[in-house]
Simulated scan of single mutants.
Amino acid sequence: MCSLQELPASFCKLASIQKLWLSQNAFTTLPPEISNLEELQWLWLNDNRLQGLPSEIGMLTKIQKLWLNFNQIQTLPREIACLHQLSWLDLSDNLLTEAPDELSSLKNLTRLDLHSNKIRSLNPKVCAALDKVTRLSLHSNDMEYVPEEIGNMTALTWLSLNSNKLKHLPKSIGNLTKLERLAVHINELQDVPEEIGNLVHVESLSLHKNKDLLFLPRSIGNLHSVKRLSIHECGLCSLPAEIGMLSSLVELWLRCNQLESLPNEISNLRSLQRLWLDHNRLTCVPSGIGSMDMLQELYLDENQLTSVPQELVNCKSLRKLFLTGNPKLITTPEIEELTKRGITRPTFF
Rank of each mutant, 00 (worst) to 15 (best):
C2N: 15
C2Q: 10
S3D: 12
Q5P: 12
S10K: 01
S10A: 06
C12F: 05
K19Y: 06
A26F: 10
T28H: 10
I34W: 03
S35L: 00
S35V: 02
E38A: 06
L40P: 09
R49S: 01
R49P: 02
L50M: 12
G58N: 05
M59I: 02
T61W: 08
T61N: 05
Q64N: 09
N71Q: 03
Q72C: 11
R78G: 15
A81Y: 10
H84V: 13
L86F: 00
S87L: 00
D90M: 07
P100A: 04
E102C: 10
L106A: 13
L106Q: 11
N108K: 10
R111D: 15
H115V: 04
S116L: 00
S121A: 05
K125G: 12
K125W: 12
A129T: 14
A129L: 07
L130A: 07
L130Y: 11
T134P: 07
R135Y: 05
L136V: 06
D142N: 04
E144C: 09
E149H: 10
I150P: 09
T154Y: 00
A155H: 06
A155Q: 10
L156Q: 03
W158L: 08
S160H: 04
G174E: 11
G174F: 09
G174P: 13
A183W: 13
I186E: 14
I186V: 11
I186S: 11
V192T: 05
L199Y: 14
S204W: 05
L205E: 04
H208I: 12
H208T: 02
K209P: 01
N210L: 00
K211L: 01
P217R: 04
R218W: 07
G221P: 14
L229C: 04
I231A: 04
H232Y: 01
C234P: 13
L236M: 07
V250G: 07
E251Y: 06
I266H: 06
I266Q: 05
I266W: 03
S267A: 14
L277T: 10
H279T: 12
R281N: 10
T283A: 04
T283I: 13
C284M: 02
C284S: 15
V285G: 09
G290P: 14
G290C: 03
S291D: 14
L298V: 08
L298H: 15
Y299D: 03
E302G: 00
Q310R: 08
L312K: 06
S317D: 11
L318M: 12
L318V: 14
R319K: 08
K320W: 08
T324S: 11
K328R: 06
L338G: 13
R341A: 10
F349Y: 07
